[in-house]
């Protein structure tokens, strides 16, 4: 007797002998929404983790590798879902409409996959920050929400080592790739870390945000920087 988190329809779970005695895992989506939520599977780009026809490095990442400034700041990124229109809807509802509870859609996937993604086990989790104004407006930071889910399943601590300058508060989603690449680094360091770092954000589009953040942390002395995003 639960509702689908996305479309608020009833979820009807079929009753079998096994579910009668052992209630099945709580599903947060109805069947039709669940079927639209596809995972990235098969070959991926080794750097950014997007779905590829074969295991290779995608064009976007090749551009990053030829860029002197950002070449080695990030080890790699691992996303969970391709950025499909359906995914876009969920993230819009979650982030812009502010339906905080939708993070529960991702929780089981994060829990399942996060351990297989990265070579080391101990690192500091750093969520990508929002500007203060936007944080007030949304009342939550979506990256922190993901980071908290990761932290509960990975026994690592979250440290908000970054802050965002308020003059660069334009939404990334309103800009083109060219405009994004040209933007100045919107972050500044509030704490320097000596450990490996896992950066957490909701979407990896051009990778600009993650690379900006990674560069600062790298310069401050973090040896290896990985990143995790929900969508690519």
């Amino acid at each position: 007797m639960t509702y689908c988190l996305k479309c608020q329809d009833w979820i009807s779970q079929s009753v079998t002998w096994s579910t009668l005695f052992l209630p099945s895992q709580q599903t947060s989506l109805c069947d039709s929404c669940n079927s639209q939520l596809v995972r990235i599977n098969g070959a991926i780009c080794e750097k950014c983790g997007r779905q590829m026809p074969s295991r290779m490095i995608c064009d976007d990442c090749k551009k990053w590798q030829t860029n002197d400034k950002y070449r080695d700041v990030l080890q790699f990124n691992r996303p969970l879902f391709p950025y499909t229109p359906f995914m876009q809807e969920i993230i819009t509802q979650w982030k812009y409409r502010g339906d905080y509870q939708l993070k529960e859609i991702f929780t089981p996937y994060i829990k399942k996959e996060i351990r297989n993604f990265y070579p080391t086990k101990s690192f500091t989790i750093v969520p990508i920050p929002l500007t203060d104004e936007r944080h007030q407006e949304r009342a939550f930071n979506q990256a922190t929400a993901i980071a908290e889910v990761i932290a509960t399943h990975y026994e690592n601590s979250i440290i908000t080592a970054l802050s965002r300058k308020s003059s660069h508060s334009e939404k990334q989603s309103k800009k083109s790739r060219q405009q994004r690449i040209k933007t100045k680094n919107p972050f500044f360091l509030t704490k320097s870390l000596e450990t490996d770092v896992l950066l957490v954000d909701d979407i990896y589009t051009t990778g600009m945000t993650i690379h900006h953040a990674a560069k600062l942390l790298k310069e401050a002395g973090s040896p290896n920087i990985y990143s995790f995003t929900l969508a690519r």
Binding site: T2, Q8, G98, Y100, A139, F140
Partner: peptide, 11 residues
Amino acid sequence: KQLFANIPCAR
């Protein structure tokens, strides 16, 4: 009740 949820509010 199912259509209410908790949010850690930054405000």
